[in-house]
Design a protein around this nucleic acid. Structure first.
Lengths: 155, 155
DNA sequence: TATTGTTATACTCTATAACTATA
DNA sequence: TATAGTTATAGAGTATAACAATA
């Protein structure tokens, strides 16, 4: 079941379970690599993964409320406040009163936000293309499909 | 290039780039799902992903030094101190002087550590099997192989 | 000079709980 | 009663910088 591994000059290792035969570990390491590359691609004071995700959804779903956006992102709504504050500070999104419900805030991208988003999308695409340079189109699609199926496991 | 999406009753969405067409986003979400399930599988005051990883490598490579282990895990050696402290507190691993180098600490699993590791491995396997219940053996191996190829991109 | 383990410290990300104003 | 946004706060997890002991 567990293939013989190279011990790379080390003291031991035989037929025991190895850490990198677990999905969770490989997933974590791959995620950290992608995230680090994402950050360096978008630059020192660029958007960051959270800001990019939030802006993307605001562009995709203008007038979304903060609570709905938090639900989409899978985070608590309290955590979204700082993210939207940051997008507002950068002039990329704004909060607007919702006619029917005075509790809610609708989120809208500014023209600058749409432009920044389009540019960020191109940058992120380039970063992912670079990281997946050795992957065929088929392999990329397979990977994405498998990851989406894990995501479906979320309740 | 971007297929028509369902707007799920929402206000908009057309042919724009969608967030979930990015690898990074799917990777992150999948990782968070796996990690949450991992934690609930190992219980309230169970090991946690970091402790499990560290213990696994200590079992796999007894006498590894802290610096070497930190390098394997891809974290700074300062961050490993608390992790090993915790394993020691639980009686699962211990530090031992290295004959040749009085700066270094060799890490060894205790008998209880080996037992706890074996049990944790079984629990983690069950958790991953549960999460990947809809995946064929082939799909699982493909996913692992693709993730490992991303990991190889690390310098 | 460089490396090992360690500590102090700070920063990011996120969750929980509580508050207010609405519904 | 329940929900939307907000704030305060705390807990992971991690990194950087510095230090003493040793190489």
């Amino acid at each position: 079941m567990y293939p013989q591994r190279q011990t790379s000059g080390s003291q031991t290792a035989g037929l025991q379970p190895a850490l990198d035969e677990f999905l969770g570990y490989n997933l974590k390491r791959a995620y950290l690599i992608l995230q680090a590359d994402f950050r360096s691609a978008l630059g020192e004071d660029g958007l960051g993964p959270r800001g990019f995700s939030a802006l993307s959804l605001v562009v995709q779903f203008p007038n979304v409320t903060q609570s709905a956006l938090a639900r989409m992102l899978g985070i608590d709504r309290s955590g979204l406040v700082a993210i939207i504050d940051d997008l507002e500070r950068r002039g990329l999104a704004r909060r607007e009163a919702v006619p029917g419900d005075r509790r809610a805030q609708a989120l809208l991208p500014t023209p600058a936000g749409r432009a920044a988003h389009a540019e960020a999308v191109a940058t992120v695409r380039a970063h992912e293309d670079r990281l997946l340079a050795g992957f065929s189109t088929d392999e990329r699609q397979t990977l994405m499909a498998l990851l989406r199926r894990i995501r479906e496991r979320e309740e």
